[in-house]
Write a protein that binds this DNA or RNA. Structure first.
Lengths: 354, 354
DNA sequence: ACAGTGATAGAAAACGTTTTCTATAAGGGG
DNA sequence: CCCCTTATAGAAAACGTTTTCTATCACTGT
């Protein structure tokens, strides 16, 4: 802030008749002998002049800021909001500041932000990458040490960097098995386009589990509703897709006892569509969500869904990254943490009536 | 990032046999005569050496970063998530980067972040202040030029700084009038503790409007549920309060035809509580929300509520702030933008049956 | 008495920019 | 032929730190 005049370390040196070097040493509590008298004089001077250190100077000297760059698709999506909260928690605890950027799922924006953060000399970077991103990004991820990839692995196997990702396949397996256990053998899969890797994993986990139970998934039970990506705003885009999917489903005369939605927001849209058409959830049809965003516990009926520990993911990723940042000498090979899902059993899935 | 070795402006100067000064001038497209030949040589060198500017150096020189500090209570609360999205949009458009901090509604954290952001030499600050904050903060807000206060005004009238706030009183008036128009004369007010100024305004708007219609609000219809602030996590705290409030309300034998909730999340909790007890919304009791978070459109029944343009608020605040930052010479007096509410009429409020 | 040591503190360099100031050459007007 | 301007470009200072390198003491042990 361009105040009247900022107090610097040199001002304090002048005021106390000492030197910037000594002031710096005192203020940073560095292990260096300074007479208690002078030390006190400096400390009180700093206090009464209202000295605030200028991080810029410090950073320039050391070449690295104490910021952690974070690139996620959106801060409005509650799923990422939780992740980001976990990241912020870990960063603040350890003396770092996160800088958040919303890529809006656009590869070019994503890359733009990565470059911006690099210019700001962030100490490290956490990124939930748009599917394959761009080539520069892939190269960057492989070359750069202080990077952690979160949420989903990239498809490109070349890219080796630290990752903290969900076990989407296992999660989907778990959900499907739950539905089977509840007696559902006729399950529809409702989704927005299955493009991101995380979605492919979910879908195949679903199909494979059915197959394992001796059920071949009838492709006619796969409902996919595309939508204009330009209207992307995490607000209602997926919710509306869910409503449209519900319509399609009902137009086919409700051909299943349960519906597995690609995520909670779509599930909410589906429930909305069903309710509006006079179908009750779960009495007439069960709905299974995916993610367990906060609101899944708040809606009516509360959503039975797969819990992804997104806060934890953020926390772990940030802690891992900061460990690397704080120990620049250590040079372990990349790790890949796979986060296990749990089931949040609530009221939108019912045991099928014989 | 501590890469092998970062390319600096000096490297380019050396590579092209010129000087840092000239390189800087070329790269920043400053109006200064440089022979086209040299200019080109520098530009191509910069490109093939993969030069990335070091913002730190630039900032140190100018004394100000191109960051905008933002302090809000929470990034998980969808209300602030939207605000923050508006702020990010405006900042990026104009070449600034927002730095978000979650105060968690704690005055000491709030102040801590303000100080941190000052150390980072942010160009300006946007803050949604916890009620009265602390004294240092009040002084800071009055003294500092590049600050914009959002969401709610402070109680202390001394504090003059730019503001972009909601007209909570008018909003509450509007909601109450809507309920009256729908035939509700017996309205209960369900709230978490009415501490923040924004809540006091809402409550008095409600009471005054009733009084204006010749109805004196019976204090027994005011339900307030406190909760431990330590367990504050925007996730479920207010939702659970809403559920508890619903219980209290029903224990009193549902003494009103409509319920006005302090905000949408509480309203969702109230609806959840009602539904669980077998009361239908809106057939048995109407519920009016406040804020219009995204999920209010997604729940069942969709919530009738007061729309606060939170994205717009963020956008306006950021634009205003950046205007001031970009014109350091201009020195207008403080402005106060009052954002007008609208009503989001959905399905949780019914016309009262005669 | 004298070199060696430890305590204390300042001087100066460095980080990567931007900007002011100075320097060189070329050209034009007298 | 000299002075003044203009075009061009480098030198150097500056921003606020941190850190390395010196410098001055006052001791100690011999």
């Amino acid at each position: 802030m361009p105040k009247k005049q900022r107090i610097t370390i040199t001002d304090i040196a002048r005021a106390t008749g000492s030197s910037p070097a000594t002031v710096s040493r005192v203020l940073n509590q560095i292990d260096y002998p300074v007479t208690p008298a002078l030390k006190n004089k400096i400390l009180t001077a700093a206090k009464e002049l209202h000295y605030t250190p200028n991080m810029l100077g410090r950073m320039l000297k050391s070449g690295v800021s104490n910021d952690i760059g974070v690139v996620v698709p959106s801060l409005q999506n509650p799923f990422y909001a939780e992740t980001v909260a976990g990241i912020e928690r870990a960063c603040r605890q350890r003396g770092y500041s996160p800088i958040f950027c919303s890529s809006e799922n656009k590869p070019d924006k994503e890359w733009e932000y990565v470059e911006l953060l690099r210019q700001k000399c962030v100490a490290g970077l956490i990124i939930s990458a748009v599917n394959e991103g761009n080539d520069d990004l892939l190269q960057f991820l492989s070359e750069e040490r202080n990077v952690v990839l979160i949420e989903q692995p990239l498809q490109n196997p070349l890219c080796d960097c630290d990752m903290v990702v969900f076990d989407y396949y296992a999660a989907s397996e778990m959900a499907t098995q739950y539905l089977l256990r509840k007696g559902h053998t006729d399950i529809a899969y409702l989704s927005t386009p299955i493009t991101r890797r995380s979605r492919q994993l979910r879908y195949s986990g679903f199909c494979d589990t059915l197959a394992g139970a001796g059920i071949t998934f009838d492709e006619s039970r796969l409902y996919v509703k595309s939508a204009d990506l330009d209207t992307y705003s995490d607000g209602l885009y997926e919710f509306n897709a869910g409503r449209a999917l519900a319509e399609d489903f009902l137009r086919d005369k409700c051909p299943a006892t349960a519906v597995f939605a690609i995520n909670d927001i779509v599930a909410l849209g589906v429930i909305s569509g069903f309710t509006e058409a006079g179908f009750r959830v779960p009495q007439d049809v069960s709905v299974m969500g995916f993610d367990d965003i906060n609101f899944s516990a708040m809606c009516t009926p509360p959503l039975t869904t797969i819990r992804q520990p997104s806060f934890t993911m953020g926390k772990i990723a940030a802690d891992l990254l900061i460990d690397k940042v704080d120990n620049p000498d250590r040079n372990d090979s990349s790790t890949c943490t796979l986060l296990k899902p749990t089931i949040a059993e609530r009221s939108s899935v019912q045991t099928v009536q014989p």
